[in-house]
């Protein structure tokens, strides 16, 4: 049991670190389009690690099923939201700051 506990701690801790990394990322990156990628971290792996860690904590119950459902919904809605946002920004003429040496 202590084994499962430790694994779930590792997952939650990784999720916490990734969340903070994403939070720092949206302040470190210079323009809107690159910030999208920083938010991508918090939407995908950070959320995933948290959910897996919590599932290990609750064990095989209805609660873990609900947690997995949350994960699935986030997994489908987050990229859609990101794409909609990027598309709108592009339509409105917001320029991306690109690398000059390409």
């Amino acid at each position: 049991m202590i084994f499962v506990e430790i694994i779930s701690w590792i997952f939650i801790f990784t999720g916490a670190l990734l969340g903070i990394a994403g939070g720092i990322g949206i302040h470190r990156f210079p323009d809107f389009y690159s910030r999208l990628h920083a938010v991508g971290i918090t939407d995908t792996m950070c959320a995933g690690c948290f959910i897996i860690g919590l599932c290990l904590q609750t064990g095989f119950t209805i609660a873990s099923l609900k947690l997995l459902l949350i994960f699935v919904f986030l997994f489908f809605s987050c990229p859609t939201a990101t794409h909609a946002l990027a598309d709108t920004a592009m339509l409105s003429g917001l320029k991306a700051r690109l690398d000059k040496e390409q």
Partner: peptide
């Protein structure tokens, strides 16, 4: 757009916060 992006992120994080708090306090 930066603001909308940030709101999106806060939304996801709040979902996680509620989930973590629910499991933590045992009120699943």
């Amino acid at each position: 757009y930066d603001r909308i992006l940030a709101v999106n992120m806060v939304g996801t994080k709040t979902v996680l916060l509620i989930a973590v708090f629910a499991v933590l306090s045992g009120r699943t």
